[in-house]
Design a protein around this nucleic acid. Structure first.
Lengths: 127, 127
DNA sequence: CGGAATCCATGTGGATACTG
DNA sequence: CAGTATCCACATGGATTCCG
């Protein structure tokens, strides 16, 4: 059987060039989305708290990532007009559905860390 | 309860700055890895066939993605010294374990395509 | 056929400074 | 506190050309 991009996957086919599902995969595939979604967890989390939870993320990237997720309807942003201002983020229902696949990914990464590192070392030595 | 990056996740903590699991997530988070792994499926696939299956990928990027996966021990490369040369790629056992979480991701993307697009349109209109 | 090498445009993201 | 704005360095990745 000869398989092509046309029939290798169901409708909403990310293998197709123009398919919008590509864009979604691209967004998930940025440096921080996976971690930010994970860091949000079940609760409402403040901006500064997220900044602390996701080590190494800059304030600019956290803002940008949150805006993207908000635009996608995956994160809700609430401003409490106190002084000083308090802003909390939490996953929407749709956002929570994303947690499962992303958690699986993170767990895969952690579980196969050693295996992958070993393989890399062997490859670099000149396999 | 106050949660920090230190206790928000188990050992091999991708939320920690220097953790190697970060690198793995970064690799998965490139433009093509998810699609290439999916396109490999169960079988042995030729380079040119992959190029056709994953629409829009350039030859350079396919090569680069495959090299990365090979280095990680997720893909095996076999050269058949015929004329002209034939090269086939297939997922290793470790590579196949990655398929499940990635498939879940792709399916999430396809399933939530409409929802996300609608939200984006609303956001852009000025929500 | 399956690359490797090169060149170059663009995007991503970090550092810093400033604001409501 | 939670951003916004700017500048800039580097990585990503596309197009093209050449090779075993």
């Amino acid at each position: 059987m000869v398989t092509t991009a046309t029939d290798v996957a169901p409708p909403g086919n990310p293998y197709r060039d123009g398919c919008p599902s590509r864009r979604i995969l691209d967004r998930i595939g940025d440096r921080w989305t996976v971690l930010v979604v994970g860091a949000l967890g079940d609760g409402s989390v403040r901006f500064s708290e997220l900044l602390r939870r996701v080590e190494g993320i800059s304030q600019k990237m956290l803002t940008q990532t949150l805006r993207g997720l908000e635009r996608d309807g995956l994160v809700a942003r609430t401003v409490f007009p106190e002084v000083p201002v308090r802003v909390e983020y939490r996953l929407t229902h749709a956002g929570r559905t994303l947690r499962e696949p992303l958690t699986a990914l993170r767990e895969w990464a952690v579980a196969h860390l050693g295996e992958v590192s070993t393989s890399q070392a062997a490859y670099d030595t000149g396999a």
